[in-house]
Design a protein around this nucleic acid. Structure first.
Length: 353
DNA sequence: AACGCGGGGCT
DNA sequence: AGCCCAGCGTT
């Protein structure tokens, strides 16, 4: 058998019981202490667990902590969330990104308040904003169901364990299903995610601290960080728009954003620049639409989002339109920057032309 | 299967 | 300046 390389012979089977025991022992000793982990293993409070899972979708734990406490204070029960205006929910979510999560959570809260919490994986999956990951997580955490999660941590940990450079979602799920400890599904899921978040990290993994390094194929190659291979990402799109400030930084005319991008949030009225178009031309369209008189350029704001690099040309304008308290509205970081631009001018930080 | 969707932390 | 993050809904 020594004539066959690992690649020709295929990966060696894992000693699954030993691996489970090692990782769970590590988790019981070194797992993270997080506020949404209160309550019995496999019997967590479904509302608190649900809020946490949605909040943590594509959001790092350190960042989610503050939002979690404030969200639960504002909406302590699913009934309170269901009864709250969507604007209040979005305000609590302000700055956290991916605002469809807040809209879906609010909509789903209405369903749960009427019919109760789901009691199966399929029941969780049927709620808006709950996909395969979240349904598996909540089924294991609140129902003690043997459902293996597949998130970014699991993908990286399992890709390394098996030295799989391009782990497809189906491959990851199959591996996760095989390894899941049916005796402690919730703890197992948390253990794999904790390992990925604190030891098996994207760059410079801490293999010396890893409880399963003895079985890790990526470590055996000497290049554990090479697994999984980086994903190819779409190029960032440059976008420009003209925006109007009617009023001042504290009280301004705001529009509700529609569509996928920042949908549901409030913001300064904007018109996107067409290819090759000058900002002043978009300004004219904007003022025509609102019946406003254009004023001078207040400044430009640059704002990077994952998929776009936005340049906002902010103009003052006059119009008879209602003004809102900008501090109470749910605004994107982009609009906050635009308003801060005006505040800075008033504070004398920029020269007046 | 591929794409769009925020914002910030880390390297 | 990239890469990544307790993913999901739409196309």
């Amino acid at each position: 058998m020594t004539a066959f390389s690992e690649a020709e012979a295929g990966p060696a089977p894992l000693p699954v019981p030993a691996l489970r025991a090692a990782l769970l022992a590590w988790f019981d000793r070194a797992g993270r202490d997080l506020p949404w982990r209160r309550g019995p293993e496999g019997g967590r409070d479904p509302y608190r667990a649900w809020v946490a899972e949605v909040l943590l979708q594509q959001t790092q734990v350190a960042r989610g902590l503050g939002y979690y406490d404030r969200f639960l204070t504002a909406f302590p029960t699913v009934q309170a969330l269901a009864a709250a205006p969507i604007d209040d929910v979005l305000k609590a979510w302000e700055g956290c990104g991916y605002y469809a999560r807040a809209r879906n959570l609010h909509r789903a809260a209405g369903l749960v308040a009427a019919q109760g919490f789901p009691t199966t994986y399929a029941g969780w999956l049927a709620l808006p904003g709950v996909g395969p990951y979240t349904a598996a997580a909540l089924s294991s955490f609140t129902l003690n169901a043997p459902c293996a999660v597949n998130d970014g941590n699991v993908r990286r940990v399992l890709a390394r364990l098996r030295a799989q450079a391009v782990p497809t979602p189906a491959w990851v799920q199959a591996q996760a299903d095989t390894l899941l400890d049916p005796a402690r599904p919730g703890a197992w899921n948390e253990a794999v995610m904790d390992l990925g978040a604190t030891v098996c990290i994207p760059k410079a993994p801490r293999c010396a601290q890893c409880p399963v390094s003895a079985w890790c194929a990526a470590r055996a190659t000497g290049q554990p960080a090479a697994y999984p291979a980086p994903k190819v990402r779409a190029a960032v799109q440059e976008v420009q728009a003209a925006a109007l400030l009617i009023g001042d930084a504290a009280h301004a005319y705001l529009e509700r954003r529609e569509g996928a991008l920042l949908g549901g949030l409030m913001g300064l009225p904007t018109e996107a620049l067409r290819p090759g178009e000058a900002a002043t031309s978009a300004l004219v369209r904007l003022c025509d639409r609102l019946g406003a008189q254009p004023g001078h350029l207040l400044g430009q704001v640059r704002h990077g989002m994952t998929h776009r690099q936005v340049t906002l040309h902010v103009y003052a304008a006059q119009a008879e339109l209602p003004r809102q308290d900008t501090g109470r509205a749910a605004l994107s970081r982009l609009d906050q920057k635009a308003l801060a631009l005006v505040g800075s001018r008033q504070a004398g930080l920029f020269p007046v032309e």
